[in-house]
Design a protein around this nucleic acid. Sequence first.
DNA 1: GCCAACGTTGGC
DNA 2: GCCAACGTTGGC
Length: 139
Amino acid sequence: MRYWLFKSEPATWSWQDQVAKGAAGEEWDGVRNYQARNFMREMSVGDRGFFYHSQSEKAVVGIVEVIAEAHPDSTTDDPRWECVDVKAVTEMKTPVSLAEIKADDRLSDMALVKNPRLSVQPVSAQEWRIICDKAGVSP
DNA sequence: GCCAACGTTGGC
DNA sequence: GCCAACGTTGGC
């Protein structure tokens, strides 16, 4: 199983919206970036991902699970764009802020820090554990 | 609201 | 295939 991070503007698609979809989940549509799309193509059902709120909040707020592998993005006719489906799994007891992530030397290699514009990115098993620990949830 | 960084587009 | 222009993103 691999770990990922999904970034979303809460005004467009928030953690609360994701939770409201329940076990049925929702497609992670709207990605129009090749790097992000390629990461989604690498995902398998059962992979876990952090749900990150960009803009005003700038914090990891929850954990989602991949429930369908990459398929055409229903919001466009352009066959280049694909997306996976994810469902909400766990809400962070304590959201982990970007400032907190930047302040931790062990997390300095994260794409979130190095390439903040990449909307879907991989997370190492170690980074996963560290952030879950900060969030007060089990990995 | 501003600005820097980055990715994409289109002309050559 | 290169590069300039442009649009978008996201942190501050």
